[in-house]
C-alpha cells in the first residue's frame, strides 16, 4: 500500500498536527518506508489467533464507584495555559 500526499494530509488532520503543504511529499515518503517495513506482518499465518488484549492473564481490578478525591480546582488548573473563574479557557467554539 502506497501513501500519497493527500492521504498524508488526511492523516495529519486526523492527528491534529499541522503540516505545511511543502512538507507533505517527505512525510508521505517516510510513511511509505515505515509501512513497507510493517508489511512483513502479512507473511504470518494468523488464522484462528486471538489478538492480544492484555499481556498478563489477569482480571482488571474493580473498586467501589465512589468519590475518593477532589476539591482542588487550583491545583488542577495550576498548569493550564489559560484559565478563568475556575475553568480551563479555550478559543470560542460556538458562534
Amino acid at each position: 500500500m502506497s501513501i500519497d500526499e493527500s492521504t498524508a494530509a488526511k492523516v495529519a488532520k486526523l492527528a491534529r498536527i499541522k503540516v505545511e503543504d511543502e512538507d507533505l511529499p517527505a512525510l508521505a515518503n517516510e510513511f511509505n518506508t515505515i509501512l513497507g517495513f510493517i508489511e512483513q506482518l502479512g507473511e504470518v499465518d494468523v488464522d484462528g489467533v486471538e489478538p492480544m488484549v492484555s499481556v498478563t492473564p489477569m482480571r482488571l481490578k474493580r473498586r467501589v464507584d465512589e468519590v475518593t478525591d477532589g476539591d482542588m480546582p487550583d491545583r488542577v488548573l495550576s498548569n493550564a495555559p489559560d484559565s478563568r473563574e475556575g475553568f480551563f479557557a479555550v478559543p470560542k467554539v460556538v458562534e
Binding site: I3, A8, V11, A12, L14, A15, I17, L27, F31, I34, L35, I38, L41, G42, V44, V46, V49, E50, P51, M52, V53, V55
Partner: peptide, 27 residues
C-alpha cells in the same frame, strides 16, 4: 509515530495493521 499510529487505527486499516499486529503479538 503519532501519525503512523493514527493511520494504522483509522477506518479501513484497523484490521489489516492493528489487529494483525496484535495477533502476531499473541504468537
Amino acid at each position: 509515530r503519532v501519525m503512523i499510529g493514527t493511520y494504522v487505527l483509522s477506518a479501513g486499516f484497523y484490521d489489516a495493521y492493528y489487529n494483525r499486529a496484535r495477533k502476531v503479538r499473541t504468537l
